[in-house]
């Protein structure tokens, strides 16, 4: 039994088949042009889009557990974050306030942001808050879709620091990025998505 995420023959009418293994404690970085199928693959692994094939986590089959339970363990973070109420703080559990504030501090976000309106946030602030929101679920695997796309260099370094900590404490990470240097900095393994298929980088 391998610890981590393993993907076999994952396909839909739109993309694939994909095969991939991401052991716990490692990061697989995927680069490739827009529209090549990177987000589609992440969405299929999270079971958000209809798909065929097998996905396993720590030896447990995805098909054997309810989808919400799977997504709490293998959590997808979209490039465009979604917000369902007006106030930022309502998107985090009430008891999580201390953890959220600590993470917000590490990512360069003021704690006042939690009481702000979502409509007043910049896209970079939203992106980092969405990352905090995903980390709070305590997933085993994070599927990140361009998590630093809207950030300045200083903030990118802060996010990468948090992500490195995630993998060093046993998390598995699939990182879709447009930045080859980031792929080299964080990726234990690297792939390129070309025309809806995965190729070694």
């Amino acid at each position: 039994m391998t610890s981590g995420l393993s993907v076999k023959g994952l396909r839909s009418s739109l993309a694939g088949p994909f095969g991939l293994t991401v052991p716990s404690g490692t990061c697989t970085a995927i680069t490739g042009p827009s529209g090549s199928g990177k987000s589609l693959m992440l969405r299929m692994i999270a079971d958000l889009d209809p798909n065929e094939g097998e996905v396993w986590l720590d030896g447990q089959a995805r098909a054997a557990m309810p989808a919400p339970q799977w997504r709490r363990r293998v959590t997808y973070l979209a490039a465009d974050s979604g917000w369902w109420t007006d106030r930022v703080g309502d998107h985090f559990g009430r008891d999580a306030r201390i953890v959220v504030e600590a993470l917000a501090g590490r990512l360069g976000l003021g704690r006042a942001l939690l009481d702000a309106q979502v409509a007043h946030l910049s896209s970079g602030e939203k992106q980092r808050l969405a990352l905090i929101r995903a980390l709070l679920v305590k997933p085993k695997v994070l599927l990140l879709d361009e998590p630093t796309g809207a950030l300045d260099p200083a903030s990118i370094a802060r996010v990468e620091d948090v992500l490195a900590e995630f993998t060093s404490t046993g998390g598995a990470l699939i990182l879709v990025t447009h930045d080859p240097e980031q792929a080299t900095r964080l990726g234990t393994a690297q792939f390129r998505m070309a025309d809806r298929h995965l190729v070694a980088a």
């Binding site: 919400p68 997504r71 709490r72 959590t75 973070l77 974050s81 979604g82 917000w83 369902w84």
Partner: peptide, 22 residues
Amino acid sequence: RERAAIEARLALGDTYQTAIAS
């Protein structure tokens, strides 16, 4: 219109019921 918000909740492990309740 609310696709991003609904899918954000689904991705975080909420059930579909919860995600579309409002």
